[in-house]
């Protein structure tokens, strides 16, 4: 299965340290928040990409293996990424959303993270619309319905919630803190 990413780095057939070096170079050209896929056949890359993400501060999303090819997904973050102020007034805590999901009420969760983040774990039946695409994809949402907006830490969902309200949507809730601390069930693609 192909996950939509902003940049693919092909390091198949290359030995250590080339997969990491190629990743580093490509990462320099990406914007914060964009997602890179590293394709490698080097078995050491499985541990190395995680260690590399750990020392550079980028967000390791996960690895998929197809035959002898590993696909590693990393999202670019800046070490000094400023945590934006939560400006959207209507929030619900993770626990509350989890309770609602376990109940009988039909509710719509919109996950505004990147497709690769979504692929490695999301709330059941959540609709994935990355923040950057939200404005073009408003048609997929029902204006009057209750919408629970979620991301990793509440930042992007805060922006999304504000945008939706501006566009005339009612009953919007920002889910905090978001998937980074989600304890409920998750689905994987």
């Amino acid at each position: 299965m192909d996950i939509k990413v902003d940049r693919v780095v092909d390091a198949q057939g290359l030995a250590c340290p080339m997969p990491i070096v190629r990743t580093k170079k490509a990462m320099n050209e990406l914007n914060t928040g964009q997602v890179l896929e590293l394709q490698a056949t080097d078995k050491g890359s499985v541990a190395d990409i995680q260690a590399w993400a750990n020392s550079t501060g980028h967000q390791f999303l996960g690895t998929k293996q197809e035959g002898h090819v590993y696909r590693h997904y990393v999202r670019k973050s800046e070490p000094d990424e400023v945590k934006e102020e939560m400006t959207f007034p209507h929030t619900v805590h993770n626990d509350e959303l989890e309770r609602l999901l376990n109940g009988n009420t039909e509710i719509r969760v919109v996950d505004v993270r990147e497709p690769a983040e979504y692929a490695f774990g999301h709330v059941k039946n959540a609709l994935n619309i990355p923040l950057g695409e939200l404005e073009q994809r408003l048609g997929e949402l029902i204006p009057g319905s209750e919408l629970y907006i979620i991301c990793r830490t509440g930042n992007r969902s805060n922006l999304a919630a504000n945008l939706l309200e501006e566009k005339g949507f009612k009953n919007i809730k920002n889910v905090v803190p978001g998937m980074s601390q989600w304890n409920g069930d998750v689905e994987r693609d």
Binding site: C16, P17, I20, V21, T23, K24, D48, S55, T56
Partner: peptide, 12 residues
């Protein structure tokens, strides 16, 4: 050179 390039690629 392997250690040096890996370290430099890790922002060291």
């Amino acid at each position: 050179f392997n250690i040096a390039t890996a370290a430099a690629a890790s922002d060291a």
